[in-house]
Computed example of a mutant assay.
Amino acid sequence: MTHENAQGDSGSRWSDLDRPPLDAASLRRALIRSGSLWTSLEVVPSTGSTNTDLTSAADALDEGTVLVAEEQNAGRGRLERRWSAPARSGLFFSVLLRPGDAVPVERWGWLPLLAGVATATALSREAGVDTALKWPNDLLVTVGSEERKTGGILAERAGTGAVVIGIGLNVSLRTDELPVPGAGSLALAGAKNADRDILLRAILRSLEQWYGDWREAGGDPAVSGIQETYAAGCATLGRRVRAELPGGGEIIGEAVAIDGDGRLVLATEEGVQEPVAAGDIVHLKAAGPAPRE
C-alpha cells in the first residue's frame, strides 16, 4: 500500500498514517496477567460512549474490564457535555471498578480524583508533559504560556456495587482540530512521546497502583496518599476562583484546600471557608494594577 493510497482511502483504518490504530493484542499481553486488576480489554473502532456501554452492562462484567474506543460519537463529560475528537487522535476509554466492602461508599467520591492523579502522574512520566489537575476532574497542560484542558474524567455509579470511570485525553490534536479555543493536546504541549499504546499502558498501570493503595487503606485519602498528591498537582489551589453551583448560585473565593471528602474549600472575602462538593470551577485572572489617575 502506498502512502498516497493509504491517505486517499477514507474508509481505511490506516487513512491517517500519523494516527495508527491501537494494538489490542499487545495491550492485553502487557496488562492482563495473574493478580492484575485488569481482567479484560477490548478496543472497538467506534462507539457512542464507552461509559454508557460499560454502565449498561455493569452487572454482567468483572472488575477490571477496560473498554477503549478509537472514536466516540456521543462521548460525555460532566454535566452531559459532549466530547468529540477525530478518530485515533486521543485516548477514549472506560474501566469498571468494584470497591466492594473494602471501601465505605461515602469514600467512593475520591475515585475520579484518584483517576486524575493516576493519569497526570503517568503522563508527566511517559509523555514528558507537566500535567496539572483542575478540580474536580480536568487535566491541564500548558500550550505556549496558556493553560489548556487536554482531558477529562467522568465517574458514574453502575449496577450493583460498581463504578465506571471514563477518561478522555487529547493526544495528537492539531490546532485546527481543537473543538474549542481553550482546548489543548499533548502534541501541542510538546509531548516527547505521543504513542497511544505506551500512554494507555502507563495510565492503566498507574491507575492499578493508586487504586490498590487506596483500597488497601480502606479508601482513606490521607493514608493512601491520594489527598496529598492531588493537592500537590492541583492547579486550582491558591487561585481565586468562581464556583458555579448546580443549583444556579455561585461562590467566589480563594481555593485553599482539598478536604477529606474531596471537596474544594474556598475562603471567601467574608472570611468564611466554604466547601464545594460539585460545580463548575472558573479560574479567575488576578486583578491587574489599579489604573493611574
Score class of each variant (00 low, 15 high):
Val143Ala: 08
Val143Cys: 14
Val143Thr: 10
Val143Glu: 14
Val143Lys: 04
Gly144Asp: 07
Glu146Leu: 03
Arg148Tyr: 10
Arg148Asn: 00
Lys149Arg: 07
Lys149Leu: 08
Lys149Met: 06
Gly151Gln: 11
Gly151Lys: 10
Gly152Cys: 08
Gly152Asp: 08
Leu154Glu: 00
Ala155Asn: 04
Ala155Ser: 13
Glu156Tyr: 00
Glu156Gly: 10
Arg157Pro: 14
Ala158Val: 06
Thr160Cys: 12
Thr160Val: 14
Thr160Ala: 15
Thr160Ile: 11
Val163Phe: 05
Val163Asn: 02
Val163Leu: 03
Ile165Phe: 00
Ile165Thr: 05
Ile165Cys: 01
Gly166Tyr: 00
Gly166Arg: 11
Ile167His: 09
Leu169His: 05
Asn170Phe: 06
Val171Trp: 14
Ser172Asn: 13
Ser172Phe: 05
Ser172Cys: 13
Leu173Asp: 04
Leu173Gln: 11
Leu173Val: 06
Thr175Cys: 10
Thr175Ile: 12
Asp176Asn: 13
Asp176Val: 05
Glu177Asp: 12
Glu177Asn: 04
Pro179Lys: 04
Val180Asn: 00
Val180Tyr: 09
Gly182Lys: 04
Gly182Cys: 05
Ala183Arg: 09
Gly184Ser: 10
Gly184Asn: 10
Gly184Asp: 10
Ser185Lys: 09
Ser185Glu: 11
Ser185Val: 04
Ser185Thr: 06
Ser185Pro: 09
Leu186Phe: 12
Ala187Gly: 11
Ala187Ile: 02
Leu188Lys: 05
Leu188Arg: 03
Ala189Ile: 12
Ala189Thr: 07
Ala189Asn: 01
Ala189Arg: 02
Ala189Trp: 04
Ala189Pro: 15
Ala191His: 06
Ala191Leu: 14
Ala191Tyr: 03
Ala191Asp: 01
Asn193Cys: 13
Asn193Met: 01
Ala194Pro: 14
Ala194Asn: 12
Asp195Gly: 07
Asp197Ile: 03
Ile198Asn: 11
Ile198Thr: 15
Ile198Asp: 15
Leu199Thr: 00
Leu200Lys: 01
Arg201Lys: 13
Ala202Ile: 02
Ile203Glu: 15
Leu204Tyr: 02
Arg205Gly: 14
Ser206Trp: 03
Leu207Cys: 09
Glu208Gly: 08
Gln209His: 12
Trp210His: 08
Trp210Ser: 09
Tyr211Asn: 05
Tyr211Ala: 07
Gly212Met: 02
Gly212Tyr: 03
Trp214Ser: 02
Trp214Asp: 01
Trp214Tyr: 13
Arg215His: 07
Arg215Thr: 11
Glu216Tyr: 00
Ala217Val: 12
Ala217Ile: 11
Gly218Val: 10
Gly218Ile: 12
Gly219Phe: 14
Gly219Arg: 08
Gly219Leu: 12
Gly219Lys: 05
Gly219Ile: 12
Pro221Met: 02
Val223Thr: 15
Ser224Asn: 01
Ser224Trp: 08
Gly225Ser: 07
Gly225Leu: 04
Gly225Arg: 03
Ile226Met: 06
Gln227Lys: 15
Glu228Gln: 14
Glu228Arg: 15
Glu228Ala: 15
Thr229Gly: 03
Tyr230Cys: 02
Tyr230Phe: 14
Tyr230Thr: 03
Tyr230Met: 04
Ala231Glu: 01
Ala231Leu: 05
Gly233Ala: 07
Cys234Ser: 10
Ala235Arg: 13
Leu237Ser: 07
Arg239Trp: 09
Arg240Trp: 07
Arg240Ser: 12
Val241Asn: 10
Val241Ile: 13
Val241Glu: 09
Arg242Ser: 05
Arg242Asn: 02
Ala243Phe: 09
Ala243Tyr: 09
Glu244Pro: 01
Leu245Gln: 10
Pro246Val: 13
